[in-house]
Design a protein around this nucleic acid. Structure first.
Lengths: 112, 112
DNA sequence: CGTGCAATTGCGAAATTGCGCAACTGCGTC
DNA sequence: GACGCAGTTGCGCAATTTCGCAATTGCACG
């Protein structure tokens, strides 16, 4: 393996580090979707979406199959969903912590 | 919170998308570590490491406390470790899939 | 075959990110 | 206070990423 493990991991995260790509993956969590649907759900023009889809395809996070004149994308493996779930967890924890901190400060200010 | 959820998630991933930062987080999984140790374990110069640590600090993924003349970093919450674990899972699955494919191709070539 | 729609690709401009170097802060020691 | 060590910050430059636009491919239909 010429590529250190931690570099592969970093690249994986870097690939996920874009709003459009995140939205695509989240939409695909509910099952395969044609590009048309993604395009309708995300605010981005066709060319832009295609570029991001290409990134996800190259990294094999999603698979694409042609069905007639449309192309249908799907997650390639449930691991992706699990990763997204972990990210959601972390964010929720962080936001909760922030709220708790705010409440604390308010309480302190109120009692003074 | 004026920031859409998926943007926060994308930013989280983007922050993790760098080899040095990944290594730092992985080293911190075994418990708090002074900068000196990180510096010894990772191939990067002090200034560079500091910059990456600053990124992690700003995003509150790690916490820093001064202990005498050294600074000790630690993960802020077990969620980070969980996220890293999920990433490891995904990578292992992907590599396993690739190996299986290679074996298949070799078997095919051998039988021909 | 030609036309139209879906999706992709190529490419240059613009924005972000990372890197190296110098300068700076905090702390302990003499 | 002056010095040295640990770690940080500021800043300009190089490299990477993203975006928008035009051109292209694949497919269905008249």
């Amino acid at each position: 393996m010429s590529v250190p493990l931690y570099e592969a991991k970093a690249e994986l995260f870097r690939l996920l580090g874009h709003p459009v790509r995140i939205r695509v993956l989240e939409l695909l969590q509910d099952g395969p979707k044609p590009v048309r649907d993604l395009l309708a759900a995300i605010e981005v023009e066709p060319a832009g979406l295609s570029q991001h889809l290409a990134v996800l395809r190259r990294s094999e996070l999603v698979t694409a199959r042609r069905d007639g004149s449309t192309v249908v994308y799907a997650l390639s493996g449930g691991d992706v969903a699990e990763l997204l779930r972990a990210a959601r967890h972390l964010l929720h924890a962080k936001l909760a912590g922030r709220h708790a901190l705010l409440d604390e400060l308010e309480a302190e200010a109120g009692s003074r």
